[in-house]
Design a protein around this nucleic acid. Structure first.
Lengths: 351, 351
DNA sequence: GGGTGGACCTAAACCGGTTCAGCGACGACG
DNA sequence: CGTCGTCGCTGAACCGGTTTAGGTCCACCC
């Protein structure tokens, strides 16, 4: 009477064996309809909830899904992508009776050990893999461990379904937007090339400019932190051919860029147009507000969780594509830049 | 040979019984030193790691700790506090072989059911309770459920130890800073009064001004979202006695405030000084950069996790105080405002 | 009427640990 | 020398489910 009811209590109440209760509750054939009703009624009456631990032990499932963030803590803190992503994923998992096991690792060398521990301890039944790197070492590792996984973005690896948002389209749209405004000297402060999405966005950016017969003034690789973005921006401003527009890898980086540009006495967007990426909340509140690319991280999180659940349920899961990222135009690119109309003069001014 | 070694394998290898292996591994008395060495050697040799599930089943522990965020998803997304907090907490937990089970709930009415489910399913051994409300209904609930918990901030409830950062001190410092700069008409765009820290900061703010014989021009209660902060700022600017300084509940709200103030053609800090709260990354990159109050969320997360682990280990845990929040002065309050030197004239200008 | 097969159900093993009652051996003590 | 206590250890029960081998009963068929 003290603790919560177990399956044995239900069996006793319904006058059947434990095994049959298990069958009835799991909708397996071989239980007479009348008996099943009686069992379900008894379970309901007693307020029976199967113990996750007991079930885990025999099914060898954890009823939990992992997300491993292998980045610096301060990068996690600065990146506006994951909070809404987590929230979206978590909601789907809770509804399915699963749990989200979150790991934050600061050093890459811990990563493999951590995945191994997750599997060895049966902490998770599958994982969502983000921050993909080219030829990501985690994919063979996961395959070796036999851990089901869904990747955030395509890898080309057929073993793991991808849930993707085509951010290249958003980047291309951004480039066209800038070209339409008359920009010709465009730079990109990109994420690290050893992150797939960092590289893909940079490539898409180049491609979109190339389609107009242009080359970027510069593509600076950073680690996605605002500090690095600030430094990169300083360098761009000091360079011979100063850009009239800068596209950043995320919104906080773009905010840092704006800060540096204005610190140099230049106006945004009059002197230099700025674009962000992610459409984080902050993008609405920078001065000027930020033109950026919205990827819908919350929806992405939900979709990734759903795909992983389907995969765990044994379904064949094909790659899934969400709505492509789309450009959100705000004030940081609102006007045609002065500098394009006075390009030569401008070129003289810069060293 | 196929799967991972179990305790039975270790027992066989060491030539003892399962039970004795368990005793040896858990450092319990009654194992001869030589035998113990042999057992540990065998366990090491086989690469034995106890199964969390098996252990959970008999110890009735989950080896996981919960954090429940009962807020709107977009509020979670906008708030820069939790990502570093999570990262800090998670790191401590991983080191202790625990896991962080994160829940994001959108509606308050799900909250009680969710805590009950967490306990019924033995998903967590204890929880960290944040976003405290006055007379928080979760405290009696947790007591009823017998779930160990640590609160973020003092509740006065002796049943749950608190891990606190004295943010009141930071707020008071902010107020003094503004007073020193000559501000006399100071407003606050605060968090909701039904959040303890929202109320506490507002009270500390009033108290600090009162100490100088002043009253705030206004204390506007918002839900902590930047959108609400933007609206509140508009109202303040339209009001008869326009403030010369505004203190916000968090940094993103402050960024929104700056955006609105500048949208009204006023300068920050020349016309209106702005202060944030949290010292999020973004505070360095607003224009102007944000004077704010640093609470050290990563350290706070780590301390909360440590306190909870100590509590779970059966130790008596007293309330713990971290370094008090401290003011970080940047450019948004960098100069003495024009308006204080031309107060009457200013008063004429506003309706 | 006996054999066959399927539907329904039970009993017991199993997952991998922890815990506890109890047993044998040995030293101390009377 | 007998008894008692302690140490070191074993064996089995237990946690709460799932799964499987097998048993009973009945309908059906030849």
């Amino acid at each position: 009477m003290g603790g919560k009811p177990t399956i044995a209590d239900v069996a006793r109440a319904a006058g059947v064996s434990k095994g049959l209760v298990s069958f009835a509750l799991n909708d397996r054939p071989g239980v007479a309809p009348a008996t099943k009703r009686r069992i379900l009624a008894a379970a309901d009456e007693l307020g029976f909830r199967p113990s996750v631990q007991g079930r885990s032990l025999s099914t060898r499932l954890a009823y939990s899904v992992g997300l491993v963030l292998a980045r610096d803590a301060d990068l996690v803190a600065a990146d506006p992508f994951y909070p809404p992503f987590l929230a979206g994923a978590e909601r789907v998992l809770v509804a399915a009776g699963r749990t989200l096991t979150l790991s934050v690792l600061d050093r890459d060398r811990d990563e493999e050990a951590h995945y191994r521990a997750l599997v060895a301890d049966r902490r998770v039944d599958g994982v969502i893999v983000g921050d993909l790197r080219p030829a990501d070492p985690r994919l063979p590792l996961l395959a070796e461990l036999g851990l089901p996984a869904v990747t955030l973005g395509r890898t080309g690896d057929p073993r793991f379904p991808a849930v993707s948002v085509d951010d290249a389209k958003g980047v291309a749209e951004t480039a066209r937007h800038l070209l339409t405004l008359g920009h010709r000297r465009i730079a990109m402060v990109a994420g690290p090339r050893d992150l797939v999405h960092g590289a893909r966005r940079a490539d898409a950016f180049r491609a979109a400019l190339a389609a107009a017969g242009l080359e970027p003034v510069a593509v600076v690789e950073t680690d996605f932190t605002p500090l690095a973005a600030a430094r990169a921006t300083s360098d761009l401003l000091a360079a011979g051919e100063r850009p009239t527009a800068v596209v950043y890898g995320n919104d906080v980086a773009a905010a840092a860029g704006i800060s540096v540009i204005r610190g140099h006495g230049l106006g945004v967007p009059e002197d230099i147009a700025v674009c962000g990426f992610d459409d984080a909340e902050i993008a609405q509140w920078t001065v000027p507000s930020l033109t950026t690319v919205s990827t819908g991280p919350a929806r992405w999180g939900a979709a990734a969780a759903e795909a992983l659940l389907d995969l765990l349920a044994g379904e064949r899961v094909e790659d899934r594509d969400l709505e492509p990222a789309r450009l959100v135009v705000r004030d940081s690119t609102g006007v045609v830049p002065r500098t394009t109309r006075a390009q030569d003069q401008d070129q003289e001014r810069t060293t």
